[in-house]
Design a protein around this nucleic acid. Structure first.
Lengths: 190, 190
DNA sequence: ATTATCTATAGATCTATAGATAATGC
DNA sequence: ATTATCTATAGATCTATAGATAATGC
């Protein structure tokens, strides 16, 4: 019944994967250690062999989720593509695999500094990527605009998810995406 | 010991005020009925005379919070002023009295439709207000830009709160605000 | 022998209810 | 008599720990 050292490592990874998904789907507070272990196919008592506490798991799982999210947008070629992917209905409706700030931002903001995982690096990396897309387009970068654009993507996704009215939700996604499409045809103001 | 009918009504309002603040400060899941009643100066058993359940309180308190937030920005005169207030350090650091979407958006998004209070009306009202500010400036409105601008404000505030690095947090607030200031001097693209 | 996992449970906390209390309002 | 509030508690749920189990790995 005892797994090999390698299987134990895989189990730990599966706990992280499961937590990263369940936390984003339901919120950190709403997901117990029990649910995470059940989702990973283990019993909840075994959890404390892998992690010191739920807080420790949270920090690691959040960083784990952000790493995966960064990789999934690494090959985006333009700001319009970035916006189309980020503001897709699929991203809105499947939160468990999406942007960590959009699902857990406000909850993470209440955690003490140092327990929020690599969130600052994550945001910095997203800003840098938008700057890289700017440079690829016309050779110049505008960090201020990169920050405002990233803010717009994040805010639109959260609003589209929070709003009760499906029509308004679709409008927020579509119009913000179109804003980036028309914006792309304007000269940069730098 | 029993209060007058009028005092009971005041008690109910104080429960709503307290819940609206505590929910925004700590998240809905993290605040028990006990804490709300204690904050309102009552014992927690008395809660169920005022509300049927915590879910009922949540719907009402969220709407209550959004009503108050709308009133507090009703007299804003320009988009720059709106951005300056919304992206102020004060708003970032005092969540209990601020924008409900920025503190509770992702948590509300997990509630079933119909239990999120007046969130759609709240977002619609914010969009309409930005359109009114556009009209007051040059007589035209651009709903698409209003949506993108509102998204940008919301996203920037959430990022500034979530990020671990105080310098990056300040930069996000300042640069997004400056983006609106410079943006205001450009011709509208409609 | 070591150790990853499981079973069982302690101790907190949270929502909700039941019955008692005591002052208001017909 | 009605009713807003309080006291006490039931029933769930959640984090964490203790001790048992059984297969791996020196």
């Amino acid at each position: 019944m005892r797994p090999t050292r390698e299987q134990a490592k895989e189990n730990r990874q599966r706990i992280l994967d499961t937590a990263a998904r369940l936390f984003r789907e339901n919120g950190i507070h709403a997901v117990g250690v029990d649910a995470v272990m059940k989702g990973a196919g283990l019993t909840h008592g075994g959890f404390y062999g892998h992690f010191k506490s739920k807080g420790d798991l949270t920090t690691e799982a959040v960083s784990h989720a952000m790493d995966a999210a960064l990789q999934s947008v690494a090959d985006v070629k333009s700001m319009e593509d970035f916006a189309a992917a980020y503001l897709s209905r699929e991203h809105r409706d499947i939160a468990g695999n999406g942007c960590t700030i959009a699902t857990l931002g406000p909850e993470l903001a209440r955690f003490p500094e140092g327990q929020r995982g690599t969130v600052s690096d994550y945001v910095s990396a997203q800003i840098a990527q938008i700057e890289a897309l700017q440079a690829a387009k016309d050779g110049t970068t505008d960090r201020r605009k990169a920050i405002a654009d990233l803010s717009s993507l994040l805010g639109a996704l959260i609003m589209a998810r929070t709003v009760d009215d499906p029509q308004l939700s679709d409008e927020i996604l579509t119009e913000t995406r179109l804003y980036f499409a028309t914006d792309a045809n304007k000269p940069t103001n730098s």
